[in-house]
């Protein structure tokens, strides 16, 4: 087993995990390896039930893998770490606290060099950045779903984590709010860079936000395919309709179908059109038989 430290911000080495169920062990991850460089954005897509959420729980240290290693910034992950921020599909704001108190919650757990005044100032700054100016003293019940999710994002980065883990945070939002929040994500990362791992079902979201998109195979999952997203410069929603993006989306769609077992890779059957081969994408060696 390799034990030399990782040079990546997030690195998974041959991670295998199974849940115990009444019907025996349910293998979820099988030999999953994954590398995310510092300050880059990695999106993970895959068929439903393929273990994407398990992946977030392993990276955040909420669970330990049966086999293999998870490294965060040169440290082997064995338990939860305060340098990680998390946001879920459910914004889980605490209803008895104001939005400001909700955003400040992680600082009650994590030791931070920030003074109380600095922390409050930072919270207000983040709330301004996500478009929640003037909502600091409101209760979560007074906010719409999209606004709660924005507040939840502020909470996940208030303590300046190295790694942000997002488990489908935009999944339950309407299309316009979702696109709005994608742009907010870019704004946030421009202000203060962090490494991010996003779990999503939305291929457009993955292409718009990420530097690399990892397609997971069906359960038990391994990294079936990695797509490097090459949209240069600051991204706008219009980039999603450029030919290059359409090409990447087609590739991802095809890979998802392979993962779902609907099409066999290399199948010469005429019905599904062969996907365009993107120039800078690379299949993982040994990922497919």
């Amino acid at each position: 087993m390799q034990t030399d430290p990782s040079h990546y911000m997030i690195e998974l080495r041959e991670v295998t995990h199974a849940y115990k169920t009444k019907a025996g062990p349910l293998p979820v991850l099988d030999n999953l390896s994954l590398k995310v460089p510092e300050n880059s954005f990695c999106a993970v897509v895959g068929p439903s039930g393929c273990g994407k959420s398990t992946l977030t729980r392993l990276v955040s240290g909420l669970m330990k893998p049966n086999e293999g290693q998870v490294w965060l910034h040169n440290t082997l992950v064995t338990s939860p770490r305060p340098t990680v921020g998390m946001a879920f599909q459910n914004p889980v704001l605490l209803e008895w606290r104001t939005i400001l108190q909700n955003v400040l919650l992680p600082l009650e757990i994590v030791k931070s060099p920030m003074s109380k005044a600095q922390a409050t100032e930072r919270a207000h700054h983040l709330l301004d950045l996500v478009g929640l100016t003037g909502f600091a003293e409101k209760r979560p019940s007074e906010l719409s779903g999209g606004m709660r999710q924005r507040a939840s994002l502020c909470r996940s980065i208030i303590h300046k984590p190295d790694v942000l883990i997002l488990d489908e945070p935009f999944g339950a939002l309407d299309a316009f709010t979702r696109e709005d929040l994608w742009c907010t994500m870019h704004d946030l990362r421009e202000q203060e860079p962090f490494t991010c791992m996003l779990i999503t079902h939305d291929l457009r979201e993955s292409v718009f936000l990420a530097d690399q998109v990892v397609v997971m195979s069906g359960r038990p999952a391994h990294a079936q395919y990695v797509l490097d997203v090459d949209i240069p410069g600051k991204r706008t929603l219009d980039d999603l309709y450029a030919p290059r993006s359409v090409e990447m989306l087609a590739t991802l769609r095809h890979q998802i179908q392979v993962a779902q077992g609907r099409t066999a890779e290399g199948d010469d059957a005429p019905s599904p059109p062969p996907p365009p081969k993107p120039a800078r994408s690379k299949p993982i060696p040994g990922a497919m038989q």
């Binding site: 729980r57 909420l62 939860p80 998390m86 879920f88 459910n90 605490l94 757990i109 909470r155 883990i165």
Partner: peptide
């Protein structure tokens, strides 16, 4: 809901902290 525990657990909070800050008020 497990997510309520997870937002604090993922930061390394103890069971007692989770009880006082989340479970009890909820």
């Amino acid at each position: 809901e497990p997510e309520y525990r997870d937002i604090l657990r993922s930061l390394g909070a103890s069971q007692a902290t989770i009880f006082w800050k989340i479970a009890l008020p909820k």
